[in-house]
Design a binder for these strands. Structure first.
Length: 838
DNA sequence: CTAGACTCCTA
DNA sequence: GTAGGAGTCTAGT
């Protein structure tokens, strides 16, 4: 028999009548060649390998012993067992100690290296060979393995009907490992299924859905038990965990407990900062609560959390990462079930733990309310998890870790099966520590500027309020849109009143603008309207920005720490909250003042770097529009070029209004244009807007083709994709309701554009810390992201290098995966504050 | 005290 | 026409 392989692990099989053939080198491998390679005959190869180890196969062996030494030892002592038994006789002290210390590891290595020769139900050799597939068997297999696209394609190829999808759940028809052990009759037809790794995934999915039993969770209150759980985590190689704290804001949260799960249903809770509620009876110095001191517990957990070989699984793990960072723990590597769900199912529903548990496990999680209900006295808002009784806290916290682990067992294999591993691994997972660092970095605010602005705005507001009251003749609540609407359209009988869905008069700024420009409106009413608009602008700036922002300054750092949601939008964008730093004013002079309050720390500068026209460039790439590509290549004014193409007006000396309209159309295209929307935006009649769109499509037929094909794909497949393969689902897009369908179609047309831009900046962000470090930049920190802009804080001396590096990373972010057909341009500038840097 | 409507800030 | 978050008012609990 000849074994055709160059795998050295198979050399142990060489014996009289069995040789190998290395097909790469066309070389025969017999007994002599094995001795040449391992220094021992084939029947001792296993002993040598178990000593020398093999890093490619993760066989540890004995440290310090390679093939040469191993062969020498085996030749002298005959085999591994004899050698280990007599290890004490070895002369070289280092070698002797290693052999004694790592004897067990050598024995484990032997089990890893030795080929199993007792596999039941081996397929007879003559049953192997190329033959036509049995459609039923093949398609059944592919369906069970959830190779959905393959099933469909191969069914098409064979002209067969694809089998119905299999619902994976306990007690379903999905084969469990037990059921799949091939019996006598089945041995020939299904052997591959039994040994397939995918079958393991199906089995894991089934295990993940086993019933929940909260009474089985352990409350860990001793050092010994915690060590035992840590050992379980090491043995499993991965575990799910969750931190319990006093706040949803990780910057102020105090650690109250830690839960972990190592297998479905096998989870524990480690209370760390529980205290009796102040209104409860206090039975002694320790409040009657037994728990491991925080410092001690964290010292035990830190090596596990930081161990590069142990995977830490969390649900929204960025939160836990931030909490642990406050205690000097840098947890890695990480997986996040929320982000897995986001990569797999964006658009199909929420990605919160409760949503996911219900969707994938059919399980309703214990609610926070249920735990907090056991805290005596106090208003609900003042109760914290740390006051909850340990038994309830354990049920809740351990269940969270348990649920997280089970979700991971279900979602992880889906990533590969649905070809979304790259999306998750390049656009989601690497962002977790990067964003966590940005959040903890925060940004410095000049409180004096904000308070000065606040007073200025307040004075303006008071003046305008008086003015309005004088014009109206009686007091009314300027902040009430309803009262304003009634005043304008009922009492004053002004024309052009529209009602909202609920029948209220509409009073938004755009409508009031048009009203003020209307010649039928009397002068004093016009003055009232304009005063109201000014009043609204100032009150908005004051309440949302100058008054609100200082309340977010963190007591410890003196900076503002926003929170970025990684899985909140459907398109892949980030969302910022508490406070939202992605909507700081910029358009008006007064608003822009607020940006001057965002400053660099002493001795540093802020750098703002933003992508120029990124979405239009992506549109030019995806839809492949020659005129747009050319304009971007030549660095032309893209809106002026559009206007020129559409209206035949030369760019030189083009009226501002013409360019403004073209700009609105360009934006409209990105948003999935409608005549109604464009008419609204430009305050022009709907048929005029429709005519613009018609002209546009005539000049740029590729855009219409892109919009039509995207719409079609969305209807056929239920999702659209970014250029990097991120999927955005629209499960309701085939609805019969034309209004709703139109909305979804526009969203589906916009999503690949907005989403691709989001992917590009995500890629830039993922690479940024490494690139800054590689460029020798020690002081540079990334602070903010505003969709197409990144803000950095950099020591003054490093500014030129930082500008160069940041620009390079951002402009090259699509590479090497996508070479866009248009250049990507980034403007970057450094200054003392955000307004000046932008 | 909470939820929804309305408004307005950003890309 | 896309994607968000937040402040205020108002009605209902």
């Amino acid at each position: 028999m000849t074994i055709v392989s160059s795998d050295k692990d198979l050399m142990q099989l060489v014996r009289p009548g069995v040789v190998m053939l290395d097909a790469m080198k066309s070389k025969k491998i017999g007994r002599d060649e094995v001795i040449e390679k391992f220094g021992v005959p084939p029947d001792r190869v296993v002993d040598v390998q178990s000593l020398a180890g093999d890093s490619t196969d993760n066989v540890p062996g004995v440290p310090g012993i390679g093939v040469k030494t191993a062969a020498e030892l085996i030749k002298e002592y005959a085999d591994l067992d004899a050698l280990l038994a007599r290890a004490g006789e070895i002369k070289q002290p280092k070698r002797r100690e290693k052999l004694i210390e790592f004897a067990d590891q050598a024995r484990v290595s032997r089990e890893l290296v030795r080929l199993k020769d007792d596999v039941p139900d081996m397929i007879p050799a003559d049953a192997l060979g190329v033959r036509d597939p049995d459609p039923g068997e093949l398609l059944g297999f592919l369906r069970v393995m959830e190779f959905n696209t393959l099933t469909r394609r191969i069914a098409e190829g064979l002209g067969a009907e694809p089998p119905a999808p299999v619902e994976v759940s306990v007690g379903s028809t999905v084969p469990t490992k037990a059921r799949m052990q091939p019996g006598a009759e089945k041995a020939k037809s299904e052997p591959v299924v039994a040994e397939s790794p995918a079958a393991g995934a199906a089995e894991a999915a089934a295990a993940a859905k086993a019933p929940f039993d909260r009474s089985k969770y352990e409350t860990v209150t001793t050092r010994e038990r915690l060590e035992a759980w840590i050992m379980k985590a090491y043995a499993a190689g991965r575990f799910a965990f969750d931190t319990e704290t006093t706040s949803i804001d990780p910057m102020v949260a105090e650690l109250v407990g830690f839960s972990m799960a190592v297998a479905p249903g096998e989870a524990c809770y480690v209370p760390l900062g529980h205290r009796a509620s102040s209104e409860a009876f206090d039975f002694g110095a320790h409040d009657g609560i037994v728990q491991i001191p925080v410092v001690e517990a964290l010292a035990l957990l830190k090596p596990l959390l930081e161990d590069p070989s142990i995977l830490k699984i969390g649900q929204n793990i960025k939160y836990d990462l931030n909490v642990l960072a406050q205690h000097g723990i840098n947890a890695a590597p990480l997986d996040d079930t929320m982000l897995m769900s986001y990569a797999l199912d964006a658009g199909k529903g929420g990605h919160g733990m409760d949503d996911l548990a219900m969707r994938h496990l059919g399980h309703a999680c214990m609610t926070f309310e249920q735990v907090i209900a056991h805290v005596p006295g106090k208003k609900k808002s003042e109760r914290t998890f740390g006051q909850a009784p340990l038994d309830k806290a354990t049920e809740y916290a351990a269940e969270d870790a348990d649920v997280t682990l089970r979700l991971w067992m279900i979602l992880k294999p889906r990533l590969a099966a649905e070809r979304l591993t790259t999306v998750y691994e390049t656009l989601e997972r690497p962002l977790i520590p990067v964003i966590a660092d940005m959040e903890r970095a925060g940004i410095l605010i000049d409180g004096a500027i904000l308070s000065r602005l606040s007073s200025t705005f307040a004075q303006g507001v008071a003046r305008l309020e008086e003015e309005v009251n004088r014009l109206v003749g009686h007091k009314f609540n300027l902040g009430s849109p309803r009262q304003l609407g009634e005043l304008l359209f009922e009492r004053l009988q002004l024309p052009g009143g529209k009602r909202t869905k609920s029948g209220q008069w509409e009073t938004r700024a755009g409508l009031l603008d048009d009203l003020a420009a209307n010649e039928e409106v009397p002068d004093d009413a016009r003055r009232l309207i304009n005063t109201m608009l000014e009043w609204r602008q100032l009150t908005k700036l004051r309440s949302t920005y100058t008054d609100a922002l200082p309340s977010y300054v963190h007591g410890g750092s003196g900076r503002i720490h926003t929170s970025y949601a990684l899985g909140a939008t459907t398109t892949g964008r980030l969302a910022s909250s508490e406070p939202n730093l992605q909507n700081i004013p910029i358009r008006t002079k007064e608003g822009r003042e607020i940006r001057t309050a965002f400053i660099a720390a002493p001795g540093k500068k802020l750098i703002s770097a933003d992508y120029s026209q990124i979405e239009l460039r992506i549109l030019a790439h995806i839809a492949d529009i020659p005129q747009l590509r050319k304009a971007f290549e030549e660095g032309l004014d893209i809106h002026a070029m559009t206007a020129s193409e559409m209206f035949g007006v030369p760019v030189e000396g083009m009226p501002g209004e013409v360019r403004r309209r073209a700009k609105a159309i360009n934006f409209g295209i990105i948003y999935g244009i409608s005549a109604f929307g464009l008419a609204n935006q430009l305050s022009i009649p709907k048929d005029e807007a429709a005519a613009y769109i018609k002209t546009y499509f005539e000049r740029f037929p590729g855009i219409r083709a892109y919009m039509d094909s995207t719409r079609k794909r969305a209807h056929e497949r239920g999702y659209v994709e970014t250029v990097f393969g991120r999927r955005i689902h629209y499960p309701e897009i085939n609805t019969k309701n034309p209004g709703v369908r139109g909305n979804l179609e526009r969203a589906a047309i916009n999503a690949p554009i907005q989403g691709s831009a989001a992917d590009i900046i995500r890629r830039a962000m993922a690479r940024m810390p490494g690139a800054l470090a590689a460029a020798g930049l020690k002081s540079a920190r990334m602070l903010l992201q505003v969709h197409d802009e990144l803000v950095f804080e950099v020591g003054e001396a490093e500014v030129p290098n930082a500008l160069r590096t940041v620009k390079k990373v951002m402009e090259g972010a699509a590479l090497p995966v996508i070479a866009l057909a248009v250049p990507i341009h980034v403007d970057a500038k450094a200054a003392d504050n955000w307004e000046a840097a932008h």
